[in-house]
Amino acid sequence: MTEATTEIELEGNDAGGRYVLRGPGGAEAEITFRRPDRHQLIIDHTTVPDVFRGQGVGTKLVARVVEDARAAGVKIVPLCPFAAAQFARHPEWADVLKQ
């Protein structure tokens, strides 16, 4: 991955948005989310184009959501199967998982 693609950006508003990592040729890896209220964030979908495969980009995106949720005191509902699988693999993220 090049230097220009290492920054995950947050785009959105109080209702929802996405975390995106841009790569070569305009490729974008992203996690989309909704905010039904100020206390929770619902991860809807994760997309990782082939150009990013094998680099842990999907996990990095989920980790960024977790980091931001911790800082904001928000709980996460991982509806996306990929995000749910990552939460199962990372018990250290349980503090932000909405039960």
Rank of each mutant, 00 (worst) to 15 (best):
E3V: 14
T5H: 14
T6G: 05
I8V: 10
L10E: 04
G12I: 00
D14E: 15
G17I: 02
V20W: 04
R22D: 03
R22P: 08
G23K: 03
P24I: 01
G25C: 08
G25S: 09
G26L: 01
G26F: 01
E28D: 08
E28Y: 03
E28L: 04
A29W: 06
A29D: 09
E30C: 11
F33L: 11
R34Q: 14
R35T: 11
R35D: 04
P36I: 01
P36M: 01
D37M: 10
D37C: 12
D37V: 10
D37T: 13
Q40H: 12
L41M: 14
L41S: 07
I42E: 13
I43C: 02
D44R: 09
D44P: 01
D44F: 03
D44H: 08
T46M: 10
D50S: 15
R53A: 15
G54T: 13
G58K: 04
T59N: 13
K60L: 13
K60M: 14
L61E: 10
V65N: 11
V65G: 06
V66A: 12
E67F: 06
D68S: 11
A72Q: 12
G73R: 13
V74A: 02
V74D: 04
V74C: 05
K75V: 07
K75Y: 10
K75E: 14
V77N: 08
C80A: 08
C80T: 10
P81N: 05
P81C: 07
P81Y: 03
F82T: 09
A84S: 15
A85V: 04
A85F: 05
A85W: 01
Q86G: 00
F87L: 14
H90Q: 11
P91E: 13
W93T: 05
A94I: 06
A94L: 06
V96F: 04
L97F: 02
K98A: 15
K98R: 13
Q99P: 15
